[in-house]
Design a protein around this nucleic acid. Sequence first.
DNA 1: ACAGGATCCTGGGGGC
DNA 2: TGCCCCCAGGATCCTG
Length: 272
Amino acid sequence: MPELPEVETVVRDLRPRLVGQRIVAVRAGKKALRRPWTTAWGARILGRPVETVRRRGKWIVVDFEGSRCLVFHLGMTGRLTVHPPDEPNAPHTHLVFELERGEQMRFNDIRRFGSATLFEQPAALEGFFAASRLGPEPFDLHARYWQGCLAATKRCLKAVLLDQTVVAGVGNIYADESLFAARLHPARLAAAVTKAEAERLRHAVVQVLRRAIARRGSSIRNYVGGSGLKGRYQDAFRAYGRTGKPCPRCRTPIERVRLAGRSTHYCPSCQV
DNA sequence: ACAGGATCCTGGGGGC
DNA sequence: TGCCCCCAGGATCCTG
């Protein structure tokens, strides 16, 4: 579910609620997440103040004083939210972190594609990102690197945008919205686009992501920010989920196809 | 090496 | 109402 704008919103919501606070208790449910939570990890983060809350791609990083960090991925249906202690746990709550002031940060995930992992050192986390070959942030995407990535693959544009080793943070919604904004057909062979088209797409991704962050991301079914608030960018979609509705540029009905295993929405007339 | 498909999971919606 | 099928903001493993 959550792509870069949603994850960024969670991070911004959590930051003022967590930084400077200590975790006084951790409780874990029984069901396994994507990467298994190790019971002993709870004890290793107790009593240390949270130093920073940050984002890398679709990953949420909570750094503690003294070098340990907790890293979350929200998968498709994950939520990381802060609640008053007397509020009952929603179904599918897998981890509860009790904060010293009494509130609780809860990790909830219906489909359990998400994960929570402890790293002992920042270097271990960097090693993990390096091992998974996590690509650069979209906002740091250099023109030559990007053009090189496009030129070096036989895949279509949609598949390249979804590839986290090329650029980190773009998912199905923002891939479609970026391609629409750049007026590029999602099935276009990446290696066949001109330099000008590649630049159009690079700028479109940044613009779409910034606008989505400004609206706190997109809430279609499960997503809420760290404060429990929904996003509003779903009301600004121009292609994603608009199958059969008129293209906001040329009124041609938006079409839907399957590309790179994912539903893909585009205007067959003005995306070329 | 690369690209595409299957797989992990649960729940909601549509059709019959 | 019930059942079955398809669909979903993602990443990883397996195959050809």
